[in-house]
Design a protein around this nucleic acid. Structure first.
Length: 496
DNA sequence: AAAATA
DNA sequence: ATTTTGGG
DNA sequence: TGAAAC
């Protein structure tokens, strides 16, 4: 074995008559300290070489310590040398020369330590580096995946989303997340999965998810998914939560009362819908219908006109799914602010007032800013950012939409209702707000997880902190002028 | 449910 | 085997 | 005071 003596032996006193050798031993090559590895060399050869080297003025250490600069082994092919060295708890192995015997014999011949060359080095066998073909591995973090609008694996992702939603209704968060992650990974693939074997190197796919995929590949459907889809509770909760203002708690409450349809709910005299839910039912048809890109732009024009009456220095930026390139969405998201710092505080109030005057405001829930830069990062648990924001339902006239409205069959009206969200950060928080409102749910989640786990940083919609709570300020709009992928955006943020 | 950590 | 999973 | 809004 690689056995090193337990204790350093005291250096042998040089005999009389060897004075010249002795002087050289004390003075020469002090900065080169050799350790000879006994394995393959044998004890007797090791001690012979040790004596030889010392007689030529080399320093040879008996034990492997941090003082050693040159490790010499006869066993250059050995795959166990490096693991053994690593197990010796040296403070910095990277500064030690690990050499084969040729360096030693060259040095003996020259009578001095020869410079270390590549041919002398015993290289660490790196973890199978070129063997496993450098197939760019799919990251487990959604923020590191380049995901296009096309979904080549919808048959699987639809199934996973049904399972995830079911776990969500049953408040099993972990499994819900696992299926959402699996769906997200498959959405990022530029190819369609045709066999379970093809998912070999993909993250976030395990036993259960692969079993579901196998079923779908084999029979075209998953029986587990079908069971959920035919489940009355699941169907009812899905129906109820599809109403704006009705979340899982309210849906569950109604379900437990035995209610199964909207007319059941509306017929209850003791159910008092809040303002949000009233609007949700009133505009149900419109706001559950997809919003087109043209409609999103038309909404932008309306906001733009309203905001430019208030300030000439307004900044208006489309975010959400449309910014990611989607052709349809369930709502329209804009970030709106002004270059005059502090003036953004009342911007939304003014916009809402203007919309109301024009008769375009069907619903408004305004939330004033609670943002305080000096109190970051936030110490209370909060799902949302602290910027001023509003959740609106707007009346969108067909005449304002290029190419016309998305309308239901037999709809004779010249308008439709659209869900619109506006956020208004101070201008110096614009970039973080864009980052926070542009990503998909999974992207945003993994952005935060990645920052914390891989970079030891803390990211939210306001700022990026390192663990010592030093604030990173980001240079605003520039990175968003060219449409970058998610990955590009994040890389830039972390490098600022 | 899957991955990371203990 | 236990903990984490977005946001202390 | 939860629940919903992202």
């Amino acid at each position: 074995m690689f056995h090193a003596p337990a204790a350093p032996r005291p250096r042998k006193r040089s005999k009389p008559g060897e004075d010249s050798v002795s002087r050289r031993e004390e003075a020469t090559f002090q900065d080169v300290r050799i350790f000879l590895v006994e394995r393959k060399m044998g004890r007797s050869r090791r001690s012979f070489l040790t004596q030889l080297a010392r007689s030529k003025g080399f320093v040879v250490e008996d034990i492997l310590s941090d003082a050693v600069t040159h490790v010499v082994s006869e066993d250059s092919q050995s795959s166990s040398l490096w693991p053994w060295l690593k197990s010796r708890s040296l403070s910095d192995l990277s500064t030690v020369n690990v050499l084969d015997i040729s360096w030693f014999t060259d040095s003996m011949r020259e009578g001095r330590p020869v410079p270390v060359e590549t041919k002398h080095l015993i290289q660490d066998i790196l973890p199978e580096a070129p063997k496993a073909a450098p197939v760019n591995k799919v990251s487990q973090y959604a923020c590191q995946r380049r995901t296009t609008i096309e979904n080549n694996n919808r048959i699987f992702t639809d199934a996973f989303e049904v399972l995830a939603e079911n776990y969500e209704f049953n408040e099993i968060e972990g499994r819900c997340l696992a299926f959402r992650r699996a769906a997200s990974v498959l959405k990022s693939l530029p190819w369609a999965v045709r066999s379970v074997g093809a998912t070999q190197d993909l993250p976030c796919l395990g036993e259960h998810t692969k079993a579901v995929m196998k079923e779908i590949l084999q029979y075209g459907r998953s029986f587990e998914v079908e069971k959920i889809l035919s489940d009355e509770r699941c169907q009812t909760l899905k129906l109820f939560t599809s109403v704006f203002g009705v979340g899982p708690k309210t849906a569950e409450k109604w379900y437990r009362r035995g209610l199964r349809s909207f007319s059941d709910v509306l017929a209850q005299p003791d159910i008092h819908l809040n303002r949000m839910q009233q609007s949700g039912f009133l505009h149900y048809g419109d706001i559950s219908r997809a919003v087109s890109k043209a409609e999103a732009r038309a909404v932008g024009n309306i906001i733009d006109e309203a905001v430019h009456v208030i300030t000439p220095n307004a900044i208006l930026a489309l975010t959400g799914g449309f910014r990611r390139g989607k052709d349809f969405g369930h709502d329209v998201d804009y970030v709106v602010t002004t270059t005059e710092l502090g003036k953004e505080e009342n911007l939304l109030i003014s916009i809402i007032e203007s919309l109301k005057k024009q008769g375009l405001l069907l619903f408004s829930d305004y939330q004033a800013s609670t943002f305080d830069l000096s109190k970051l990062p936030s110490h209370r648990f909060e799902a949302m950012d602290h910027f001023a924001k509003c959740f609106l339902i707007l009346r969108l006239e067909g005449s304002r939409v290029e190419g016309g409205l998305q309308r239901a069959q037999g709809d004779g009206r010249g308008w439709r209702a659209v869900r619109v969200d506006l956020v208004s950060p101070p201008a110096d928080r614009f970039a973080f707000t864009m980052l926070g409102w542009t990503g998909s749910r999974m992207f945003e989640r993994d952005l935060r997880r990645f920052a914390r786990l891989e970079r030891r940083m803390l990211l939210d919609n306001h700022a990026l902190f390192d663990k010592t709570k030093v604030l990173f300020i980001l240079g605003c709009t520039k990175i968003f002028t060219h449409k970058g992928s998610h990955y590009t955006i994040f890389t830039l943020v972390l490098r600022v």
